[in-house]
Structures are given as C-alpha cells and as structure tokens.
Amino acid sequence: AYAVNHIVEHIPEESFVGFLRETGCPAYHPRMMMKIILCAYTQSVFSGRKIEGLLKDSVRMMWLAQGYEPSYR
C-alpha cells in the first residue's frame, strides 16, 4: 500500500485535471480512486463488488481510501 501511495502521489496534479467536474454530485478524487484500483489489481481483484468488499475488510485499502467508502455502482 505504501508503494502504491508513493507512486500515485508523484503523478503531477495536471494529469488529473481532466477528470474533475464542477456540476453534479461531488465525485471521489481521481488520485484516490487510482490508488484503490492499483492496490486491488496487485491482489488480483478485478471485480467492482470485490473491490468494495476489500474496502470494508482490508486495513490497507481503508488507508488508501482515506476514510471514503466508494460503491461499486
């Protein structure tokens, strides 16, 4: 989890600007979502529902999600 966090934190902020929106419901930050997806992929978890389950069970995933609980929907 530390390695994934370190890698994603060194990506320039300009890379994520295109994903941010001003209208609608506030979305999760793309940087946080990338951390979750990369950590799940390192554990061979590819399903959205299984990733959501990891977010509730794994301390590493909770730490990367910064207290948020994104749904698979």
Score class of each variant (00 low, 15 high):
residue 1 A to H: 05
residue 1 A to M: 05
residue 1 A to Q: 04
residue 2 Y to T: 08
residue 2 Y to M: 06
residue 2 Y to R: 06
residue 5 N to V: 02
residue 5 N to L: 06
residue 6 H to N: 05
residue 7 I to G: 00
residue 7 I to T: 00
residue 7 I to D: 00
residue 8 V to A: 00
residue 8 V to W: 00
residue 8 V to N: 00
residue 9 E to R: 04
residue 9 E to I: 01
residue 10 H to N: 07
residue 11 I to G: 01
residue 11 I to N: 02
residue 12 P to F: 03
residue 13 E to S: 12
residue 13 E to W: 04
residue 13 E to D: 09
residue 14 E to M: 04
residue 14 E to F: 04
residue 15 S to W: 05
residue 17 V to E: 11
residue 17 V to Y: 12
residue 18 G to A: 11
residue 18 G to R: 09
residue 19 F to A: 08
residue 20 L to Y: 11
residue 20 L to H: 07
residue 20 L to R: 07
residue 20 L to Q: 11
residue 21 R to E: 11
residue 21 R to Q: 14
residue 22 E to I: 11
residue 22 E to T: 13
residue 24 G to A: 05
residue 25 C to W: 13
residue 25 C to R: 15
residue 25 C to G: 10
residue 25 C to L: 13
residue 26 P to T: 10
residue 27 A to E: 14
residue 27 A to Q: 15
residue 27 A to F: 12
residue 27 A to N: 14
residue 27 A to S: 15
residue 28 Y to P: 01
residue 28 Y to N: 06
residue 28 Y to W: 10
residue 28 Y to K: 09
residue 29 H to S: 05
residue 31 R to E: 12
residue 33 M to T: 02
residue 33 M to V: 09
residue 33 M to R: 05
residue 34 M to L: 11
residue 35 K to V: 02
residue 35 K to C: 01
residue 35 K to P: 01
residue 36 I to L: 03
residue 36 I to Y: 01
residue 36 I to K: 00
residue 37 I to E: 05
residue 38 L to M: 11
residue 38 L to W: 05
residue 38 L to S: 01
residue 39 C to K: 02
residue 39 C to Q: 04
residue 39 C to F: 08
residue 41 Y to F: 15
residue 42 T to E: 08
residue 43 Q to K: 12
residue 44 S to G: 08
residue 44 S to E: 12
residue 46 F to D: 09
residue 46 F to K: 13
residue 46 F to T: 13
residue 48 G to T: 14
residue 49 R to N: 13
residue 49 R to K: 13
residue 50 K to P: 04
residue 50 K to G: 03
residue 50 K to R: 15
residue 51 I to V: 15
residue 52 E to R: 15
residue 52 E to T: 15
residue 52 E to F: 15
residue 55 L to W: 04
residue 55 L to K: 08
residue 55 L to D: 03
residue 57 D to V: 09
residue 58 S to T: 06
residue 58 S to P: 03
residue 59 V to H: 09
residue 59 V to E: 15
residue 60 R to I: 14
residue 63 W to A: 02
residue 64 L to E: 00
residue 65 A to M: 03
residue 65 A to G: 02
residue 66 Q to G: 03
residue 68 Y to S: 03
residue 68 Y to P: 04
residue 68 Y to D: 05
residue 68 Y to W: 06
residue 69 E to L: 13
residue 69 E to M: 13
residue 70 P to Y: 11
residue 70 P to K: 14
residue 71 S to K: 12
residue 71 S to F: 05
residue 71 S to H: 10
residue 72 Y to Q: 13
